[in-house]
Structures are given as structure tokens and as C-alpha cells.
Design a binder for these strands. Structure first.
Lengths: 238, 238
DNA sequence: ATGGAGTTTGTACATATGTACAACTTATTG
DNA sequence: CAATAAGTTGTACATATGTACAAACTCCAT
């Protein structure tokens, strides 16, 4: 069951976690050399998003990045540090999403409060999903939430529990007479639906290739679906 | 990335897939000996449901069942055959669920058609989820749908695509002027929500231990949530 | 050029893992 | 009881995998 190695070396690879230390601060695009640290990070992000954390080996990552095996360890140390670094690298996406949620007018004066919350929560990820740069990360997040392992749970807890809490607290304000646990379940249902839109590939088979995974055009359908659920099921009969 | 072994032996372990060939047809409870084939199957089901398919090793399964490693291969052959056998063993659950869906009156005469479809689809799994015998399998199904690997995809396709198709076709009859792809997305959202109720463990943390995973008491909340979503989002503006 | 910090690479190693197999034991059948 | 079948077990093996390490190389400041 993938034992964690017992001997924690402690001294390992904190060598250059800051950046690849580009010579004379010239961006990689202007140098003939490429930024191999970035290549590794992007490759890992891509492969983890495609296959999940556990099945991807360090050798897979190195091969995909076109670098020797040892370079992965040189830059990132242990495999799970690489996963953490990916999330740390994309932290701004999460912060922006939290900030956008905090801007929503969730007072009972706003008749569209629930819809505004759902949209502020879902829209940024779905735009990330169609952004070529952000697409792998958006799918990786879905896989990490779904994956039962230790490493995935750690990054989700660290980076996404705050966003969940903000969603829940904001929704509680918009639906003031509803028990918090009911709102939590509404959040769970919504997250489940959102993740299926982002990362489920079965939809292409089931729709006989009429629908495709991560279709941003379905954003409004999702927002309406979830808003109706909150208003009609969660919000009633406190 | 967990290569599949190249040499397909073909002759391997089709020895006794029928049953453990109980001596003189006496049930295991009356014999002093236990049914080790069942033990292995149950252990595998439990461990796969807890950790997913890939991270669980054949040794883990053998240890949990209290049998030597080689006995797993003796009864089930390759690891992925074990997964298939689990699903084959629980086939009746799926068949019953399809049968129940087919009983729903999805004509436009029935004002509750959408709700009836959703309930017929969700209720049986949620009851399985609280049934001590069926609980591991219900969670395993969720993990298999979420897991990106080859083996999980195979069993889901084989055993669950028909159920999905029946849901979609039935819902199309209940919502006659809606494009099929829209109903497919509604199905995806619903499945995502249902799986979170069945198998997500984060809900306990987020609710500060007020809610617990697989709580069958939330069945009505889920059904109302999804019904409202279908009626208000999927069903409108064909 | 020289030194040194940072980078790159080949390789080794301990452990994990799926699978197979031959030997052995227990039960069933004639 | 003998013979056949079913069940059981220890073990081996090829391969996979995370991690570490030392040697080599590149580039820049001195």
C-alpha cells in the first residue's frame, strides 16, 4: 500500500527551491537554454492531472520533461514535495477565487445572493479549465479531491479548505434560517457536480460524443442547476 | 506508470472460479473451516473501497484476509481479474437498480416524473451505503468512477454504462423538449453529487464533525436538490 | 585562469510488487 | 484403500520505483 519510507533524511534537496537561478536574470525565452525546473513542474502537473498522483512515477515525469531522472530529485526532493510545490505555484488562483467570493453581496437584500455565490465560486475554475496554461492544474485539483491517498488529502486540506469554508459561511449568510450542516451538504453536492464537469471523461461516451469534458459553455447550466438546488432544497424548511 | 505485464500467460488460474467447492455442500458456518475465497473477495472489496485500486497490493489483500499471498492468485489470477470478480459478484445490485428505474412512470402525465426518476436512481445506492454488507461495494463504485486508471474504467464501462443510459433515456422522456446533451450534463451533475454523499470524507472536517459521509438521512435532501436542478435548469428553455 | 556556486548526469541500492510454480496437505470419489 | 482433485503454502524472480550520491560540467565573478 505504498509505504512511506521510514528514514527521513532531513538533509535532502533543499538546494534550490527558489528558482532555477537563471544566469544573469535573463528570461529563459531569450537564453538558448530552457528552464528545466519549469519543464519538470509542468510535466508533473500534466501527468498528475492525467493519471492521478500515485500511478505517475518520477521516471515518467523525467521522461516527459526530457531530463534525467536525478534532476527531479535535485530540484524538488521527494515526490510528494513536488505535488506540494505545484499547488504552491498555483496558489494565486485559489486566493483570487476566495477574494472573488468575499466580494459577493450575500445580504438578504440581494435576491440573487445564492446565484452570485455559486457563480463566483464556479466560474473562475471553469475558465481555468479552458485556459491552456491552467487546464492541467484545474483537472489536477479535481483528481486530488477524489483521490483517497495521504498526499492528495494533504494538499487539498492545506489549499482548499479555506475556500470551502468561505463558500459555506457566505451561503449561510444568504440563507440565514438554514442549519449549517444542510449548507455543508449543499456544498458537497455542488462540488461533486463541478468536478464532474471539469474532469469526468465518461461524459463523452455517454453523450455519444456530443458533449466534451470541461466544456465552459455549460457554466450557466451548472450555475442554474446548483442555484435551483440550494433555493429549493437547502433553503426551504430550515 | 504501472505497466501491464507483457507476457499474457493465458493458462493461469481459471482453476476454481466457480466457488470454493465446499466439502459436501455444507455451509461455511457449519464447517469448522472458513471460506477463504470469500474472505479474499471481501478483503479486496474493503481495501479497494478504502484506498482505491492501484495503491492496494495483492499482499495487502492476503494479509487482511489472513491467507498466504499465493492463495489470492490461485483463486482470482491477475489482480485486475479480482476487481472484475467483485463487480460480477455484486451484479444483482446493478440489475435491480436498472429494473427499478424502468418501473418509473416517466410519461408527461406524471407531474413527479423527474423526482421519481432521481429517487429510483439514488435511493438504492444510499441504502446499500448503510447496509454493512453492501457498504464497501457502494464506496468502491464511487472510487472506481473517480479513478483515472484503465482497470477502473473497464469495470465502470462494463457494469454501469447501461444504468447511465437508462437514466438518460428515461429522463429524456420526462423532459421531452430538451436536447439530450443537456440531460447528459444533468446526469453528470447528479452523479457527482451522489458520489460525494456516498464517499467523500472531507464533509466531516468541513462540517466540524456534524455531518458524516454516506448519511442516508440526506437522501431526501439530495433528491430535492437534484430534482430542482433538473426542473429549473435542464428542463427549461429547450 | 581560477574558484566556486549552481547544474547535470549516470548509476546504485534497498525495497516493493505482480505473478508463477513446485511441493505439500486435505478432501472426495471410485 | 488408492487415486484423483481441490486447496494450501513457501518461495523465487523479473521488474518497477523512490531516493541518494558522487563525479562531471557550465557559467560567472574575481
Amino acid at each position: 500500500m505504498a509505504r512511506i519510507s521510514k528514514k527521513a533524511s532531513g538533509t535532502a534537496a533543499s538546494k534550490k527551491n527558489v528558482s532555477p537561478a537563471r544566469r544573469s536574470s535573463v528570461p529563459a525565452t531569450e537564453t538558448g537554454r530552457v528552464d528545466r525546473r519549469q519543464d519538470i513542474l509542468r510535466s508533473a502537473e500534466w501527468l498528475f492531472s492525467k493519471h492521478g498522483y500515485h500511478p505517475v512515477t518520477v521516471r515518467d515525469i523525467a521522461a516527459h520533461a526530457g531530463v534525467p531522472l536525478a534532476l527531479v530529485g535535485y530540484y524538488f526532493g521527494k515526490k510528494h514535495e513536488l505535488l506540494k510545490t505545484i499547488f504552491e505555484h498555483r496558489k494565486s488562483y485559489i486566493i483570487d477565487r476566495i477574494a472573488r467570493m468575499r466580494q459577493v453581496d450575500c445580504s438578504t437584500n440581494n435576491p440573487r445572493a445564492v446565484e452570485d455565490i455559486v457563480r463566483a465560486w464556479a466560474e473562475p475554475v471553469l475558465q481555468l479549465r479552458v485556459n491552456p496554461d491552467g487546464q492541467p492544474f484545474s483537472v489536477l485539483v479535481a483528481r486530488s479531491i477524489w483521490e483517497p491517498g495521504e498526499e492528495a488529502r494533504h494538499v487539498v486540506t492545506t489549499y482548499y479548505d479555506e475556500l470551502a469554508a468561505v463558500f459555506i459561511e457566505t451561503m449561510c449568510k444568504a440563507l440565514p434560517n438554514v442549519h449549517r450542516d444542510k449548507v455543508v451538504w449543499g456544498y458537497e453536492f455542488s462540488l461533486g457536480a463541478l468536478l464532474m464537469l471539469i474532469a469526468d471523461e465518461r461524459v463523452e461516451r455517454l453523450s455519444q460524443h456530443g458533449a466534451k469534458s470541461g466544456d465552459v459553455a455549460q457554466t450557466e447550466l451548472l450555475v442554474e442547476f446548483l442555484t435551483a438546488g440550494f433555493l429549493s432544497a437547502v433553503g426551504q424548511r430550515a
